[in-house]
Nucleic acid binder design. Structure first.
Length: 571
RNA sequence: GGACGCGUAGCUCAACUGGCAGAGCAUUCGACUCUUAAUCGACAGGUUGUAGGUUCGAUUCCUACCGCGUCCA
């Protein structure tokens, strides 16, 4: 492409015109902010003039070039130079061309940041000449540049790229302007809201590369959290691929909700004119695949639940689900321990992790039945603890609920709640917060487990377990119910619960799923694991928003009123 | 949904019991040019989240709203 198509004299005019006309960056909340932007515009103009008049560049090349042929990443160049002393670098120079973002300027010294690494560069007039020195002076923190030169060590020994190009090459190349000022270079970006809303700034500023103060804890490293998140997904895929599981993708848009109990997001398909839901779980589709003969399947994908936002809940979250034919929940317990240990080793090189001020060993597990857990953690101030036998006595769980409420525990229950439902609530109330070290809680009441197989010897209990780490639920697994008639009845029970006012219960019988079971689901174990929560544990992140790149936030500049006015579904 | 807390310059933070809204970084201009949060000098930068109220006077007290956080549901 020739650059001559660009009307040279008007280029800057057009830039300015576009800036003015379109107000291309609708971000000026104050005049001062706009002034800062205009300063950068002036700097860009200076760089353009310099490039076209002194460096022989076209206007486009001068201000927004289309690339830079770097020879090494900053990390790679660093690696080459690190083992060499000042003398060695002088005797046999290590040269290279690197690109990056300017994050500090100290006289002739500046710091480039790229790919999670930093490298100091040194620009001196004698080495680069007056024109490039002028270009250097027009740069701002935040700009992207490319530089060519050779490594040296400063007086204090810091590895530094001395900018100096071989004949015929430009030593310092302007690559892109930061038109907006970066946050304080020392304190970085602290504002939690802004860190989530403008994750790109968070990633620039909180990449663990800040100067660490002596005795201070390590600087926040948002970049590393998400690098680790990718490593978690990679490790999970490796684990299952090695065991003969097939990774599959099932629908995100469901016409019948199922596989979990939760409030959905509603949407609509125009061409078919039918209501659809964003899926709350992939479960029923994955089991259809096991019916179809994929004996081992797994899926890692998003689920959507139209519920509150908290440090442990985001409306869209990532779930791993896997199913294994001819396995039961005991097999899955072993697999779970293996999986979590494997992932921890892969990601952190250790099963030890630190979360919420606690050291957790993801390689050491304990198992308790739900009933045992209730007995174990029953609070003495709530009066006489339940006994094992009482779990079989109808009406007892309601007494326990009343006891807990009397002792000041918040405990919601409606008259008519089944004993099984109350038992599950009692468990959550008394035990959940204590489950810091990896703990498998097994055998769940039938009433809260509409998709699980009952225990052969205890018809009111199911072969189901959840595992807890750090005080919250991370995964949920069971021997899958495969009797179509029983499944039909349990769906109908759910629909009745729904009609009774339980908003989370399933609202419709998934007849096709019952039909699939009719063709024969082999005995199967299935499990779901919340990936975000697992990443929280492995990275020591206190909030789920710290492990989701763009967590859900209320849109800015729109108050509730305004949203109601313009919203499609104002209720 | 409830309780508590926070919101001050582009960023990070001050401002005593209600009494002239301040500093560092970044920006602009200048000096310096082996610096390490570079340094030195100068200039500039504010709807104290929004709207009301109390008061001679409100960043500060009160009310409502907006946004965020923590805990609970």
């Amino acid at each position: 492409m020739s650059h001559s198509f660009l009307p040279k004299p008007n280029y800057t005019e057009s830039l300015r015109y576009r800036a003015k006309r379109a107000k291309p960056l609708p971000l000026f909340e104050t005049e001062y902010e706009e002034k800062l932007y205009n300063d950068r515009l002036a700097s860009l103009e200076k760089i353009r003039a310099l490039g076209t008049e002194k460096l022989g560049l076209s206007p486009a090349e001068a201000v927004y070039p289309n690339g830079f042929p770097f020879t090494a990443t900053l990390a790679e160049l660093r690696q080459q130079g690190e083992p060499r002393s000042a003398e060695e670098l002088e005797a046999s120079p290590v040269t290279g061309a690197v690109a990056g973002r300017l994050v500090a300027i100290r006289g002739g010294f500046a710091v480039l940041q790229q790919g999670g690494s930093r490298l100091q560069i040194y620009v001196h007039k004698d080495a680069v000449g007056p024109d490039l020195m002028e270009l250097y002076k027009a740069l701002h923190i935040g700009d992207h540049i490319g530089v060519r030169g050779s490594l040296m060590r400063t007086r204090t020994g810091e590895l530094t790229l001395k900018v100096q190009a071989p004949e015929g090459q430009q030593a310092l190349v302007f690559l892109a302007k930061a038109m907006l000022a970066l946050p304080d270079k020392y304190h970085g970006l602290e504002d939690v809201e802004q860190r989530y809303r403008q994750r790109y700034v968070d990633l620039i500023m909180n990449s663990g590369l800040q100067v660490a103060e002596e005795g201070e804890e390590a600087p926040r490293n948002v970049r590393e959290v998400f690098v680790k998140r990718a490593a978690v997904l990679r490790a999970i895929r490796q684990f299952f691929d090695e065991r003969g599981y097939l990774e599959v993708e099932t629908p995100m848009l469901h016409s019948i909700l199922g596989g979990a109990t939760a409030r959905p997001f509603n949407t609509h398909h125009n061409a078919l004119d039918i209501p659809l839901y964003l899926r709350i779980a992939p479960e029923l589709f994955l089991k259809r695949l096991v019916v179809g003969g994929f004996d081992r399947v797994y899926e890692i994908n998003r689920n959507f639940r139209n519920e509150g936002v908290s440090t442990r809940h985001n409306p869209e979250f990532t779930m791993l689900e896997f199913y294994q034919a001819y396995a039961n929940y005991h097999d899955l317990m072993n697999l779970t321990e293996e999986l979590i240990g494997f992932v921890a080793e892969k990601v952190n090189g250790s099963t030890l992790t630190h979360f919420n001020g606690q050291e957790i060993d993801l390689g050491k597990w304990t198992k308790l039945s739900m009933r045992e857990a209730i007995l174990k953690w029953w609070p003495s101030e709530a009066g006489a603890a339940p006994t094992m036998e009482e779990f079989d006595i109808p009406g007892k769980p309601a007494n326990w609920a009343a006891q807990l409420r009397g002792a000041g525990y918040k405990f919601e229950f409606k008259p008519g709640d089944s004993d099984g439902k109350l038992i599950a609530s009692v468990f959550e109330t008394v035990a959940e917060e204590h489950l810091i070290q990896p703990t498998i809680i097994y055998d769940f009441p039938l009433a809260v487990s509409p998709l699980s197989k009952i225990k052969p010897d205890e018809p009111e209990w199911t072969e189901r377990f959840e595992f807890y780490i750090g005080g919250f639920e991370v995964g949920n697994a069971f021997s899958e119910l495969n009797d179509p008639a029983d499944q039909q009845r349990r769906f109908e029970d759910q629909v009745r619960e729904k009609e009774r006012g339980d908003e989370e219960a399933m609202s419709e019988v998934d007849e096709d799923y019952v039909r699939a079971l009719g063709y024969g689901l082999p005995p199967t174990g299935g499990e779901g694991i919340g990936i975000d929560r697992l990443v929280m544990l492995l990275t020591g992140s206190r909030s789920i928003r710290d492990v989701i790149l763009f967590p859900l936030m209320r849109p800015q500049g729109k108050g509730k009123e305004e949203q109601k006015e313009h919203g499609e579904s104002a209720e």
